[in-house]
Design a protein around this nucleic acid. Structure first.
Length: 276
DNA sequence: AGCCAGGGTCTGC
DNA sequence: GCAGACCATGGC
């Protein structure tokens, strides 16, 4: 567990002794698209149907207007706080190149996001850049999500999108991805594609299942599994990771990485893009 | 103007 | 199986 204590004061939950946790890096490294920086170390966003303002100062993390119960039931898992990233990094640091990536951003973590949101967001991500992905996702939520107190919107569930038309989704300036979003929503809403089993299904079966969606190839499937279904073995290979693999790991990642290779991928991705 | 952005599909060999 | 055209959009 990567924090010492959680306590509620004046309606806010305060975590102390938080380790291996760099809020800014976690929320702005291309794994999620619904958080905006408000000020230094302070971010506002929506996840799992709830709005949150969260702030980090050194080893303390403040979750505004959050009961202890909500922290325990929702955010503790979302921020992957039950995982000991000391152990993860001990494995990764046995490798020289990965040790450099970890050293560049020791506070990186992989979030446990809502599966549908992760799937849909990474469908939108294809051949796209992060600011524009965020824009499309935001317009999608404003158009079809539920209004929350405070003015933000939830991510619309499959049922809500399944009845839309390609034209309506294209109005979000999602381009050629509109038909893919719709196909995913219809499959998920009809039950033809069940998401819940993908948490535990044999990996190659899960990959195949996701790739039955139009517009979902190996990269998007891997992203959905890693970020949405907590499958830490999954390694999305985009152009950056492809370059890194070619240069540093022509034989692939060391086998010892396997159970947490996807987390290693996140350190490496961030290092490749933002490091030096 | 041309290239790139956390890719995938479709076609032709 | 694999290369190449094409796909919408926006920033640089």
């Amino acid at each position: 567990m990567d924090y010492t204590s959680a306590a509620c004061r004046d309606g806010h939950t305060i975590l102390t002794g938080v380790r291996h946790f760099d809020l800014g890096a976690i929320l702005d490294c291309g794994q999620c698209f619904r958080w905006e920086q408000r000020s230094e170390g302070c971010y506002a966003g929506v996840a799992l149907g709830r709005a949150l303002v969260v702030e980090q100062k050194e080893d303390r993390v403040l979750l505004r207007d959050t009961t202890l119960r909500e922290f325990q039931e929702v955010w503790r898992d979302y921020f992957d706080l039950d995982r000991d990233y000391g152990e993860v990094k001990a494995i990764l640091e046995t490798d020289e190149a990965m040790a450099a990536a970890v050293a560049f951003c020791p506070g990186m973590r992989v979030l446990r996001q809502d599966p549908w949101e992760a799937l849909c967001s990474f469908i939108i991500s294809q051949n796209n850049n992060i600011p524009r992905i965020k824009g499309i996702v935001e317009r999608l939520c404003r158009a079809f999500g539920d209004l929350l107190p405070g003015g933000s919107f939830t991510f619309p569930p499959p049922r809500r999108l399944a009845g839309r038309t390609v034209e309506e989704l294209a109005e979000l300036r999602s381009g050629f991805r509109a038909k893919y979003i719709l196909d995913a929503a219809r499959l998920a809403a009809s039950g033809e594609l069940e998401l819940e089993p993908l948490y535990t299904m044999e990996l190659d079966k899960a990959r195949g299942s996701l790739m039955s969606i139009k517009g979902v190839g190996p990269k998007v499937a891997e992203c959905a599994l890693l970020y949405g279904f907590g499958r830490a073995e999954c390694v999305p290979v985009d152009v950056w990771i492809k370059r890194a693999l070619a240069q540093l790991y022509p034989e692939g990642f060391p086998p010892a990485f396997s159970p947490i290779a996807g987390i290693g991928q996140q350190y490496l991705f961030h290092y490749m893009r933002k490091g030096r």
